[in-house]
Write a protein that binds this DNA or RNA. Structure first.
Lengths: 225, 225
DNA sequence: CAAAAATAATAGTGTTACTATCAAATGATA
DNA sequence: TATCATTTGATAGTAACACTATTATTTTTG
């Protein structure tokens, strides 16, 4: 499995970047430091000027990789979803029982992230925090329809559809598999956020995880049709 | 009921504004036009300069009502949640059966909004679109903990807790009433958004509504414990 | 070693997000 | 009706942001 793992080349739509940041050392430093910096100060306070200072490089050099910080956010979150999708596929493919398969899928999508040593320049824990706190901003824009057409959200959408198919396979009678899938994936980010900032609005805490909540939900639905 | 309705004075935390916009004609024009303008161009493109032009007034005058556009967004969305909360209370109070009560509550929280003639300067339909497309941005910030402490999200939180209590009343054995409540309220906004921009990721459309989806979900949970 | 490519440095533009100051209009009071 | 206070409007100014353009320097590659 480790072998296969290392073969994952995260594939991201070419028009998200001007120059592939994976192709150079500076590019990788841009990725690594932007994760640190966005996690630290938040996306609104994050600027290419500050990132330049952080990596000891020039603002203008960063602009040769990404048109603007919005596209960098799309890049980072696409990387994240691609990384999750890889685990999703790999860790469900061997399960034949559709209910077990679905439970495993939900576990992967809702659990707390741990460091992945296969990607030296990416801090997956910080990246997952960025996804929790910033992902919505990547699509809650006036440009969403054009960017969707241009494939900016393709990986995320594919993942939602994969989960939808598993929900439908586990329970062919259920009428809302797509809505449930999007609710779980988006809702998981939301529950993680609430756990960190609005503790009264969630039952999740140190003991109870979003995974517990969503698996219970899906099991109730499965029992009931 | 209409009588009671008109008695609703939407009550919003004083430190969200510098000067109550309800107290003057200019203030009401700021609210009315900001709803139009944010709905039209989106929150990122919205500026106080543009709003000043739109109402034929000066940028500096707007700054006397709101410190910045973030606080204006908090004000608008607080108004929205307060307006929803009022309907929520009024239209559930007479229902004694806890399951019926819950179903009605979910209907109010997830249905498409219609114009309310009681508030001349507020376009509730546009405002609900703003909530769908921009609300997350009001709390997905680095300042969220301080602003939460300052009561900026009090109305929204109260509403989530009201729904949580109804979920618990309808089904005392269910282990995740708070998470389900926050999932429904946030998830409803998300399903409305998907219906408009990512049709493949939801089952909701012209025929099937987010209300159908969430009521079905809650009914399955109720049957099953 | 030369040519090409990548990066860095510097400067400049228009916009944003304000703050400050002062003038004009409006309204309340004596 | 005079005057005083409050509100609004106009103008100007600042620092930061979001870039673009140009040129110099360094690094890579053939």
């Amino acid at each position: 499995m480790d072998h296969v793992y290392k073969n994952l080349k995260v594939e991201i739509n070419n028009d998200i970047f001007l120059k592939d940041p994976e192709s150079t050392d500076l590019g990788k430093r841009i990725i690594a430091s932007s994760i640190d910096l966005i996690d630290d100060i938040g996306f609104e306070h994050f600027t290419f000027r500050k990132l330049g200072v952080a990596i000891g490089s020039n603002e203008s050099s960063i602009y040769r990789y990404f048109e603007n910080k919005h596209k960098l956010l799309i890049y980072l979150t696409s990387w994240y979803w691609s990384w999750i999708e890889y685990q999703f596929i790999l860790q469900t493919v061997a399960i034949s029982n559709p209910v077990d398969k679905l439970v495993q899928a939900i576990t992967i999508l809702t659990r707390e992230v741990v460091q992945d040593m296969n990607y030296a320049h990416i801090d997956e824990i910080k990246l997952s925090n960025i996804v929790i706190e910033e992902y919505s901003k990547s699509y809650l824009t006036k440009e969403v329809d054009q960017e969707n057409k241009d494939g900016y959200f393709a990986i995320y959408k594919r993942l939602v559809l994969r989960l939808r198919d598993m929900i439908a396979a586990a329970n062919p009678n259920y009428a809302f598999p797509a809505s449930l899938s999007s609710t779980i994936i988006e809702g998981s980010l939301h529950q993680h956020f609430l756990k960190n900032h609005f503790t009264a609005l969630t039952d999740c805490n140190q003991q109870i995880t979003p995974t517990d909540y969503f698996i219970n939900l899906v099991q109730i639905i499965n029992k009931n049709s």
